[in-house]
């Protein structure tokens, strides 16, 4: 059973290292910054650009669209989590590569979070930021045409 999807922003502590999402007018975006000098995009806001050393990292947001670089389904126990769950590296449009959980709530007939399938994703497929897992992880849903089981 995969994780459930929620649009309720989790309360992440200040030391929580996971990528931060924001909900803007019903659209889920990823927070981060872009270097004013070289344009490098990153999912945190460091004091200097890790690529060119520029000291103007402008806070911005990315997404919701993204392309899958690669993906897997983890099926072993991890403390505090119930396997299996889908994971993917996604390249946010004109933005950074981040790790996300994959939730196929399209398979959840009554929307109660039960019956959510673990979905394999194919590299190159399109996804969009969809919210958070109940553990507070950033989560994506595949675009319908990019489901691996699509005809």
């Amino acid at each position: 059973m995969s994780d459930r999807l929620t649009l309720e922003p989790p309360e992440l502590g200040p030391a929580d290292p996971r990528p931060r999402l924001t909900l803007v007018d019903g659209v889920v975006l990823a927070s981060g910054s872009r270097c004013a000098a070289c344009g490098h995009a990153i999912a945190v806001v460091p004091p200097r650009c890790p690529v060119c050393g520029g000291d103007t990292m402008e806070g911005t947001s990315f997404g919701p669209g993204a392309t899958v670089f690669t993906a897997t389904i983890l099926r072993i126990p991890v403390p505090g989590r119930e396997p299996p769950y889908g994971l993917a590296y996604i390249d946010l449009d004109d933005g950074p590569r981040i790790l996300v959980h994959v939730i196929d709530s399209a398979s959840d007939d009554d929307g109660d979070g039960d019956g959510v399938a673990v979905l394999p994703l194919r590299p190159g497929g399109r996804v969009h930021l969809a919210g958070w897992t109940e553990h507070g992880d950033p989560a994506v849903r595949p675009s319908p045409a990019d489901r691996e089981d699509a005809p």
Partner: peptide
């Protein structure tokens, strides 16, 4: 870790 905190074990 940004990925470890998401349950990203080494096999993944």
């Amino acid at each position: 870790d940004a990925e470890g905190a998401q349950g990203f074990a080494m096999p993944s």
